[in-house]
Every structure is written in C-alpha cells, then in structure tokens.
C-alpha cells in the first residue's frame, strides 16, 4: 500500500502518512519509515489490542478531521472492508471498494475496480468529498523499495476509551490457518485443489508441490465443503480473492464463483483431465491430464531443478 501511496503522493507532491491503531505498535514505525512514510499517526492503548469497529472508527474519524488527508487508503482485507465503509458513512465520504488500480487524473484520484466478478471494470472518482477513499487489493500494486535509515515523524494521537461502553466484544478468536503454513492472501504462489483431488489424503500431493515452491495451499469451495481443507484456504466469491504471481489450479473446473477469486493472478496454470474445463479459458498454461500423476511428477521435476 505504501508503494502505491508513494507513487500517488509523488505525483501530487504530497506527504505519505501512515496511521496505526492498536496496542504495542510502536515497533511498526521503523518498517513504515523504511517503506516511505513521512509521518506516522499512532493511536496506542492496551484496550485497542482487539479490533473493534466502533472504537477504531471513532479514533480514525478524529484523525481524519484533524489532519484532513486528500486520499485515504485501506487494504481490502476483512478488517479494511469493515472499517472503511463505517468511517466513510460516518463522515459522509465517497468510497470505492476493492480497487485494483489507482491513478491520478486531473488532480483527482481515479479508482478502478472490478464489478460483476472480475468481468467488468469500472472507473470511479469522488468528485466532491475529501478524503477520497478506497479499499485496495494491495497485492495487485507494486511494493515500495525499502530504504534504510529513513525516519518518519511519529505523531501521537490522543486515545480516550471507555471499555464499558463497547457494544460488541470479541469473546473468542481462533486461527484456522496453521502457524508456519503460508496463508493464501500473502503468498506469491498458490497451489489450489478442487473436487478432482478426490480426498484429504490426496491433498498431500498438492501440499508437497506447495512445499517445493514455498507456496500456499488453496482450495475450491467443493474441496472445503468436503472437509479436505479449512475455510481459510477457500478461493473465490465466498472465500478470499487472491492475486498471486503464480496460481496453479489442480482438479478445479473453473466456475465463475471460483474464477472471480483468482482471475487477477499474473500467471495461471491449470491441471485438469477434462480438456473442456472452463479453467483452461483463463489459464496461461494448461495440462490436460490426471492430477494424481501430473502433480507428483511436477513436484519431482521442480525439486530437481531446485527452484
């Protein structure tokens, strides 16, 4: 996100400011500076450890009103997509969701986002309200080059919290992603399996390929439903939208609900025994064959090639 912000800020000759809200977050200032933040607004309090829509909104709206940014970007994560619209509506600001491209046109932010799955793109501007707001698929934007020895100005923001006034409380939290296992929204390479994998045991061959490529394991909804993989692995309309550098779909037919979640990948490789499978329509490389034979061979070949 900072990479994109830097590009926009340079074009407009404006500052790049980062906001961090939470507890024990000072440690992030360094990395934010390295990636180009000029100023960092920091709202820190033990009570902010757990994300809470209302209190985060109240802090962020105060920061916005005080510092009056021109553009405000959020990652299109679940938290980003919960917080951004709440803030936008509270301050009566326009907001574009899940953008894949941001440019400056006539001094205004031009936001490009997919609608109808990824079948159609729409260009959007915010004619009258400031800040111009967008949630963005950060993975689709170029990462900033880190620069050592940069140090941003850190500005402490006042925090006033009355925990008793919280109307919602998180009672329990559970990670279904397994520690040490790459999650699909951060991986550069994803190997996904669908119904064609056939069983939980056979998913091993997908995992082995992922291991060799240091990739994350994804799944179609059918594979998640069958209990072969946790929900956090699901790619698609009701799962996660991903846009890695390489997406390998094994035994996935390529229904629109799945395609919308991965069509943005740079390179798509499909392995499917049905030459008519719609996944081949979006694949850059397609192998028609039985994944149970192809995948282990691919793993072996890549291992030998030592990638």
């Amino acid at each position: 996100m900072l990479g994109k912000a830097k590009e926009l800020a340079n074009e407009l000759s404006q500052d790049i400011c980062a906001v961090i809200i939470g507890s024990e977050i000072r440690k992030f200032c360094n990395v934010l500076s390295t990636f180009g933040a000029n100023k960092i607004y920091i709202a820190e309090d033990g009570a902010l450890k757990e994300y809470n829509t209302e209190i985060y909104t109240s802090i962020l709206t105060k920061i916005i009103l005080k510092h009056k940014p021109n553009i405000l970007l959020f990652p299109a994560t679940k938290i980003g997509r919960d917080l951004a619209p709440r803030v936008a509506s509270t301050l009566k600001l326009g907001l574009a969701a899940d953008c894949i491209k941001l440019t400056i046109q006539n001094g205004k932010l031009l936001m490009t986002r997919p609608v109808y799955g990824d079948n159609i793109l729409a260009d959007i501007i915010c004619p009258n309200t400031r800040p111009q707001m967008a949630t963005i698929r950060a993975k689709m934007m170029e990462k900033a080059e880190p620069k050592q020895n940069e140090s941003a100005e850190v500005i402490k923001e006042p925090v006033n919290i009355n925990v008793d006034s919280f109307k919602t409380i998180v009672k329990e939290k559970k990670k279904t992603s397994i520690p040490g296992v790459k999650s699909i929204d951060e991986a550069d390479i994803i190997i996904s399996g669908g119904r064609g994998v056939g069983s939980k045991e056979t998913f091993k061959i997908i995992e082995e390929l992922a291991d060799v490529l240091n990739a994350a394991v994804g799944a179609s909804r059918t594979a998640v439903e069958a209990g072969w993989k946790p929900k956090s692995c699901q790619v698609g309309q009701s799962g996660t939208t991903v846009s890695p550098k390489i997406y390998i779909a094994c035994g996935i037919s390529g229904t629109t609900q799945h395609l919308v979640g991965m069509k943005g990948s740079d390179v798509i490789i499909a392995i499917n025994k049905d030459p008519e499978a719609p996944i081949f329509e979006v694949a850059n490389y397609g192998i028609v064959g039985d994944l149970k034979e192809v995948v282990p061979l691919l793993t072996k070949a890549l291992k030998e090639k030592k990638i």
Partner: peptide, 16 residues
C-alpha cells in the same frame, strides 16, 4: 458521493 466515469471489459487474458 462517488461517480462512475466509465465501464469497460478488462483486457483479455492472453490465449494460453
């Protein structure tokens, strides 16, 4: 508060 200025098809993926 937002205005859609254009709708269009994404560039087609290169034929695989």
């Amino acid at each position: 508060l937002i205005q859609i200025t254009k709708v269009y098809y994404p560039p087609p993926r290169e034929k695989g």
